[in-house]
Design a protein around this nucleic acid. Sequence first.
DNA 1: AAGGTTCGTGGTAGCCTCTAACGAAACCTT
DNA 2: AAGGTTTCGTTAGAGGCTACCACGAACCTT
Lengths: 215, 215
Amino acid sequence: MAETDTKTPRERYRTLVRAEIKERAREQIATTGASALSLNAIAKQMGMSGPALYRYYASRDELITELIKDAYRSLADALRSASAAGADLAALAHTLRAWALEDPQRYLLIYGTPVPGYHAPDDITLISSETMAILLDACIALPSDSPATPFDAHLADHRDWADGHPASPAVLHRALSFWARLHGVLSLELAGHFTGMGFDPAMFFAAELDDLLAH
Amino acid sequence: MAETDTKTPRERYRTLVRAEIKERAREQIATTGASALSLNAIAKQMGMSGPALYRYYASRDELITELIKDAYRSLADALRSASAAGADLAALAHTLRAWALEDPQRYLLIYGTPVPGYHAPDDITLISSETMAILLDACIALPSDSPATPFDAHLADHRDWADGHPASPAVLHRALSFWARLHGVLSLELAGHFTGMGFDPAMFFAAELDDLLAH
DNA sequence: AAGGTTCGTGGTAGCCTCTAACGAAACCTT
DNA sequence: AAGGTTTCGTTAGAGGCTACCACGAACCTT
């Protein structure tokens, strides 16, 4: 019992419609941004009237939350498969950038401006911790010859987030820097802050990555 | 002839009401975020009926644009006065962080998720270029002993954004890195991605800054 | 004091989210 | 196969929003 199989035709139909709704929502968000997502428009697009959607998603927030979860999962999948294919830290960085550019709004769904009221469910932090684990694995493979900083010492006492990962404080620090710096370049690029400045964002990204790996 | 003085009582009143509207909008955004800003709510709060506000701001977008401009100006002011007081790059960084933490939503108004349709007016890029100039001034004062990178060479040919500033490509690169890295840490912190991880964001910020200045 | 400008109002259109009540269709059981 | 039950999709409606219009009222200017 507790069959999670798609057994009954009703369940089949339900999950199918849910999937289509989510797909339409994904398309809509990709073009107009998450704030402009309209359940009504999706319903009309699917040939049914507004409130019918509420049989499938209890609220607009629930639908967005589902999309956020999917985004986290997609990112974790991309990084995991790259890592499984033997990608080092540099390759992982380019995987991240490619994933972000593939659908900028999906990246912003995760790392963009949060809604003040919204609080992420627990399962999201679970998937996000998997991403962090992949990152830590890649960082631990790299030789680290930098001297210990005060922040390293601080991290030695605050490493709950590493979730039992056998990484030295210096490695934790490296992972955090990796994350923050790549996000810095990427988010400025995606937000369009480089448009009109003339230079190539890809080269800036590569330069930041080089600096990250060299020091 | 083109009197910008607050002469007529009508103009006085008008600018006063406009200011109050903007102030209420600022408060509302600070608590609920920019996406939840409601002209109707502001009007009711001020004791007048909905459409009355449209005498003062042509649209919701115009009001938000005004707030964005104010945010840019406020940041430029903060950095300029710090710079005038003899602040070096490190002090400038802490000025930036303090300004961001003082009103996170104001920071996100500038650097947060952009609305896909929205295009910034020209005067905004003007103010933002002033911020960049201050940053470049601070970067040029620092000795740079790093070897030239490919990105430096690229910047030598794509330096229109520096707007005639006498800075070497290496300095331009340093300014961009400064901007992107601090934004990376700050935006992750403001978006709440560090909450629950246990470590102190301020120490991470300081560590990133140290690394930036050391290399 | 008369005239023109501006302000605030209510009304309205058109969106949106979301609830409630009602037929109708599909499913499962017997 | 027939009946009962669950689920679906509909319309109606509450309450919110942006934004436009037309009208009366206040105001400043002349």
